[in-house]
Amino acid sequence: MAPPDSASRNGHALLELRDVHASYGPIRALHGISLAVPAGSVVALLGANGAGKTTTLRAVSGMVKTQGSVQFEGHEITNGRPEDVARLGIAHVPSGRGTMTQLTVWENLQMGAYVRRDRGAIRRDFDRVTGYFPWMRERRHQVAVTLSGGEQQMLAIGRALMMRPRLLLLDEPSLGLAPLIVRQIFEIIATINREEQLSTLVVEQNANLALKIAARAYVLEVGRIVLEGSASELSRHESVRKSYLGI
């Protein structure tokens, strides 16, 4: 698919990180990274294990102590509380999916709509989400712990969509899933972005897939951004091909 113009980076970015540092106690995880997610596009954050990808998302959601500046729609949200950041319209699907395993599928989705009041709109969103994931409709009373890994990942994405977010943060949606399922999930992410213009920042180790659906991408190495560019540029880039695409 055709990536939107990547030059919008300096225009109105929906999410913008500038010189963000983060640390867990004495252990520093991010050493000043800057990135931007333009409205309506998918941005991928690539890198090896421990490069700081997850920490970057956690910095956006206020789940790790952060220095520097995180701006969402022009508002400073650095070190905001996770629940406040969520209420601003950022849906974060954490790594490991954060499935509420003892709750049913429907209850999980309801939790996504927790801060919303309009029952009718919530109903419509349930229909919208089950449009992407039809199996959820007939299995809505199933307890989530009995779902497969892939289904739990879809449920986590569905829960995020129920928030009616303006930005979706996805942390390694492929983690621990079979290749076929992973491809399916990435197709759905691309579809959602195409149909709803939902801005998405996706963290992935599987660069191959991520670059297929992303417009732009950043490559992280030990807490620093070492490469950035449009997805097509990066997929042609020598070192990316070597290290992350396995070609």
Binding site: S23, Y24, G25, P26, I27, R58, G62, M63, V64, K65, P82
Partner: peptide
């Protein structure tokens, strides 16, 4: 809590 723990908790 040790500082590291305190950070984890703050999240």
């Amino acid at each position: 809590a040790t500082p590291a723990e305190a950070d984890q908790i703050a999240t």
